[in-house]
Design a protein around this nucleic acid. Structure first.
Lengths: 360, 360
DNA sequence: CTGTTAGCGCATTCAC
DNA sequence: GTGAATGCGCTAACAG
């Protein structure tokens, strides 16, 4: 009880068995008779035995940290709310595994970095955000089986061999063809819901500020937007953004110049939506009276903005947790989470969540 | 080049030296002649040698992860923007060390958890947020020397033996008496600046929504507020909050009831400030015309709120980095970062950063 | 300055 | 089922 640190050998000795048996019992692997099992367990208990994580990881060759790799052109992407929330969630859920979390940004050309990671024997698993199809196809072999992606980018996450089936409900399990698991929101349904709502409110000239084209996850929103818009016989108006408010402002100006009669702007990022609102306000255009605006993600303060931001809300923490577990080889390989529209003030008209600041 | 993994022995053999010498050269510790040093370096280069982090950490008994311990009553504190930003910053800066990051919440009574951490040989260092004096005094001995705190809570961070001297400029180095390092913002000057500004704008009935009293970091703002207010012969009006918007709303109602003539509310959290604004608006009170409001921290969207939030801006990422480095025994033990007032719309009057949404 | 000898603490072959 | 040996890959203490 006052001992510095009981080791496996101490436990074995006290239990009257060999270190090997003690190891088998305590690590839960391998056979052991009920008798020796009990002896080892009580001995460990009495000695207050705590396995040395590092020694165990070395012997097991299992690595000590999960690396969250964010692929983006922006160097400040690591301050992005989505990234920080996801990182924190993973760092918290990995606690019982005695595994740590690393965060690292890579540029669009990141083959070298990924190879480097694959060669690092301290890396237990990798969670990758911001991928495209090609990247996954050329994933270093050493990373296969211990990598998960966030942002699936449509139904095929593995450049061809995917098989995403169900997408109903929260955290639906989905099958996937290759060694790369992942997690994401059903962005198509979220964006679809917002656009449908805008349409129901009478908006007929809806523009979309999409994500960057190099990003796989940018595809589904664009596809859904285009489908809905064409089906309604409305004009398709797409501008590319990059999840920042700066690009949101620029996008708004482009939209106003090219299609002055636009009466709604849907975006794929709350920050972008805020940029759009700012730019519109600067031009004297009223939100939502003249132009409705929607965001995406529902960042913590989105509902406290003025006007309160209509957006789609996502369980970022759950997504992150699902991704690490998938990367560690647990649970389903691919999970899809719901993207639920939050109708607030920037949509105009009546919504589920009414606002109180429309008293102009 | 096609080898699976070059080990230290391979490098040593190729360089014509012993593994020990190779280790000394590659780990940068211990002496080595210029000749063998060069030989080892080129051999390692040619073999593409990458040290095995886990083996190294085991032999060195150094641990593989830094644990960020957040002490708070709220279970959702791990979603707090400050916590997620700090966690992400640490997870990123630890990369070159090949050390991971863990995040964990503990309740106010956390002696057992800290003991547990102290016994975990996988833990390289601990960064603690939300401490009070007593906690630091009773810190497990095993944690001493590898622990840093965020939120110093005044001039004495070690229950008596501190010696904080300079506090001018960015990241000023400060000396400290015991084995616990730390990092924080100079909250006193930030709050002081905001209150002084409110006073300059003509506010004379300024209330403060302070932090929880169990938290050491709550003290400086209260002290400064009280000093400034008394010096000006104005009434001291303090209500306790907890960094949430919910408590902000409650605090606003309390303030209105107890001191109806209040014309400004300073807070120690942006979320709290937003709650105050909401509650005031719900009562028909205009911000900033009737009551000015200030926040604290300058969360990413604070400037995009309506009205844009006056607050104090803090280099959260730098603070986090300073804290981990201090915990790992690098650089100065205690660092103080500036807290700079950002005067925006909720202050009323003219400010440095004008808003554009005041066109009602 | 260098090489030799021991570990670090646990997991895992193999025979028995 | 169990135990004895061997290895994980590197660092550290000790002589030379």
């Amino acid at each position: 009880m006052g001992e510095v640190h009981a080791g496996l050998a101490d436990v074995a000795r006290r239990a009257g068995v060999s270190p090997a048996t003690a190891s088998r019992v305590l690590s839960g692997t391998g056979p052991a008779s009920t008798a020796s099992r009990a002896a080892v367990l009580t001995a460990a208990e009495e000695l207050g035995y705590r396995p040395h994580p590092v020694a165990r990881q070395l012997a097991r060759r299992s690595g000590t940290r999960v690396v969250f790799v964010v692929r983006d052109e922006r160097t400040d992407i690591l301050r992005d709310p989505f990234v920080t929330r996801a990182t924190a969630a993973m760092a918290a859920v990995l606690n019982p595994y005695q595994i740590g979390m690393s965060l690292s940004r890579v540029g669009l050309e990141c083959a070298a970095e990924l190879d480097h990671l694959a060669a690092d024997r301290g890396v237990a698993a990798v969670v990758l955000a911001g991928h495209d199809r090609e990247l996954l196809a050329h994933l270093p072999p050493r990373l296969r089986g211990r990598t998960a992606v966030i942002g699936l980018g449509g139904t095929d996450i593995s450049a061809g061999s995917a098989d995403v089936s169900h997408r109903n409900g929260a955290g639906t399990d989905v099958s996937c063809g290759n060694g790369v698991g992942g997690a994401d929101v059903d962005s198509a349904s979220g964006i679809g819901g917002l656009i449908t709502h805008l349409y129901a409110l009478g908006r007929r000239r809806i523009a979309l500020v999409a994500g960057p084209s190099w990003l796989a996850a940018s595809a589904p929103p664009v596809r859904v937007y285009a489908e809905l818009t064409r089906a309604a016989g409305l004009p398709v108006r797409i501008v590319r953004g990059d999840f920042t408010s700066v690009r949101g402002r620029a996008a708004a100006r482009v939209i106003l110049r090219r299609w002055p009669d636009t009466d709604a702007v849907a975006t794929v990022s709350d920050a972008t939506a805020m940029g759009v609102v700012q730019a519109l306000a600067a031009t004297g255009i009223k939100v939502p009276d003249d132009v409705a605006v929607t965001g995406f993600d529902d960042v913590p303060l989105a509902g406290a903005l003025y006007p309160a931001l209509s957006t789609a809300t996502h369980p970022v923490e759950e997504i992150a947790v699902a991704a690490v577990k998938s990367a560690l080889g647990e649970s389903p390989q691919v999970r899809l989470f719901p993207s639920i529209p939050m109708i607030r003030e920037t949509c105009g008209g009546g919504g589920a969540c009414g606002g109180s600041a429309s008293t102009a």
